[in-house]
Simulated scan of single mutants.
Amino acid sequence: MSQFVLHKGNTRGHANHGWLDAHHSFSFAGYYHPERMNFGVLRVLNDDRIDGGKGFGAHPHDNMEIITIPLEGALAHKDSLGTASVIQHGDIQVMSAGTGVSHSEFNANEDRAVKLLQIWLFPNKKNVSPRYDQLTLNVDERHNHFQQILSPNADDAGVWIHQDAWFSLGKFDKDFESTYQIKKAGNGVYAFVISGEVTIDGQILGQRDALGIWETDSISFKANTADAEVLLMDVPMSL
């Protein structure tokens, strides 16, 4: 029998700093909830809106796999590895912090907000050499299909990380139905609805709702509205 946890969008942690409007699916910064520390190796899922020209100055990370997915606008990134880049909708960015890296993130535009998801996963190897990568994806490939955007394998679709995790993004027509097969025994799936309404394993989820499912090998999916967009995070449940 599968197990699940439902996180409605309006129950997330929320911090509005003026220039930054952030929602936290799991305990982060000033938001602490003892039952929302992580979902398996998924430690952070932040849903951020950053005003034009604003952002985070240089700050350090270590021993974490950090994934950034822009939803609207553009984000400028600089880090201690010498990287200077801009990512926008359709891109995915990954940073393996490993032994330690510092980076800054700023809205690349002065006149409009940038919206993004930033996700942290515990790695399966500690103290690796820090690395940075980004990839521009073909968003047409996620129409009525879960497009793989991240995996453990450098030669597979999407970016790769130091963890047995697979991420997929899909955008669906109304009434589209599918089944997602979990990639590795012992993994669970944390499904996050970016927009629209869907039904996953019998649970109706609206915009920014999330459902974590484990102790199963597949999940059923149906889009209840047009242009329903969903991120699936297939992750180990054991730290």
Results as ranks from 00 to 15, higher is better:
residue 197 E to K: 15
residue 177 E to F: 02
residue 127 N to Y: 04
residue 163 Q to N: 06
residue 17 H to A: 14
residue 32 Y to N: 11
residue 173 D to T: 15
residue 2 S to C: 04
residue 112 R to P: 01
residue 213 I to K: 05
residue 174 K to R: 15
residue 199 T to R: 15
residue 62 D to W: 05
residue 37 M to T: 12
residue 161 I to N: 02
residue 44 V to K: 09
residue 1 M to N: 08
residue 70 P to A: 04
residue 98 G to V: 12
residue 105 E to K: 03
residue 162 H to R: 01
residue 211 L to F: 02
residue 133 D to Q: 15
residue 143 H to R: 15
residue 217 D to G: 08
residue 74 A to H: 14
residue 18 G to T: 09
residue 7 H to R: 15
residue 115 K to E: 11
residue 216 T to D: 01
residue 123 P to Y: 00
residue 51 D to V: 04
residue 90 G to T: 02
residue 108 A to V: 02
residue 219 I to N: 05
residue 174 K to Y: 09
residue 111 D to W: 03
residue 84 A to T: 13
residue 88 Q to K: 12
residue 121 L to M: 01
residue 85 S to F: 03
residue 29 A to K: 15
residue 105 E to D: 04
residue 19 W to C: 11
residue 30 G to T: 07
residue 111 D to T: 12
residue 216 T to S: 07
residue 33 H to C: 09
residue 54 K to D: 06
residue 49 R to L: 10
residue 5 V to L: 14
residue 141 E to D: 15
residue 55 G to D: 00
residue 199 T to P: 07
residue 12 R to P: 06
residue 149 I to M: 09
residue 226 A to H: 11
residue 225 T to N: 04
residue 15 A to D: 13
residue 37 M to S: 10
residue 38 N to R: 12
residue 48 D to F: 12
residue 131 R to I: 09
residue 164 D to I: 01
residue 65 E to C: 04
residue 74 A to F: 13
residue 39 F to A: 12
residue 45 L to I: 11
residue 198 V to L: 02
residue 105 E to M: 05
residue 228 A to N: 09
residue 19 W to N: 12
residue 220 S to I: 02
residue 157 A to D: 13
residue 22 A to V: 07
residue 237 M to N: 10
residue 220 S to A: 10
residue 202 G to F: 01
residue 172 F to D: 08
residue 235 V to P: 05
residue 59 H to Q: 05
residue 163 Q to S: 03
residue 27 S to C: 12
residue 212 G to Q: 02
residue 37 M to R: 15
residue 103 H to E: 02
residue 208 R to Y: 06
residue 159 V to M: 12
residue 48 D to C: 12
residue 130 P to W: 12
residue 99 T to Q: 15
residue 186 G to E: 01
residue 69 I to P: 06
residue 97 A to H: 04
residue 216 T to A: 06
residue 222 K to N: 07
residue 11 T to E: 14
residue 32 Y to E: 11
residue 81 L to I: 09
residue 27 S to W: 14
residue 171 K to G: 02
residue 79 D to A: 04
residue 86 V to W: 08
residue 162 H to I: 02
residue 213 I to E: 00
residue 165 A to R: 00
residue 149 I to E: 03
residue 142 R to G: 08
residue 234 D to M: 01
residue 22 A to E: 03
residue 122 F to I: 03
residue 108 A to S: 07
residue 89 H to M: 11
residue 204 I to T: 14
residue 50 I to A: 10
residue 15 A to G: 14
residue 149 I to Y: 06
residue 47 D to L: 07
residue 35 E to L: 15
residue 48 D to V: 10
residue 210 A to H: 08
residue 233 M to E: 00
residue 84 A to K: 14
residue 190 Y to V: 02
residue 211 L to P: 01
residue 70 P to K: 05
residue 197 E to G: 13
residue 10 N to H: 09
residue 58 A to M: 12
residue 180 Y to P: 03
residue 221 F to Y: 10
residue 119 I to A: 07
residue 144 N to R: 06
residue 171 K to D: 05
residue 83 T to Q: 13
residue 122 F to K: 11
residue 219 I to H: 04
residue 110 E to G: 03
residue 103 H to N: 06
residue 101 V to S: 03
residue 186 G to N: 02
residue 5 V to H: 14
residue 155 D to E: 14
residue 86 V to Q: 09
residue 15 A to K: 15
residue 80 S to E: 06
residue 192 F to S: 11
residue 237 M to K: 11
residue 106 F to V: 03
residue 195 S to H: 06
residue 145 H to T: 04
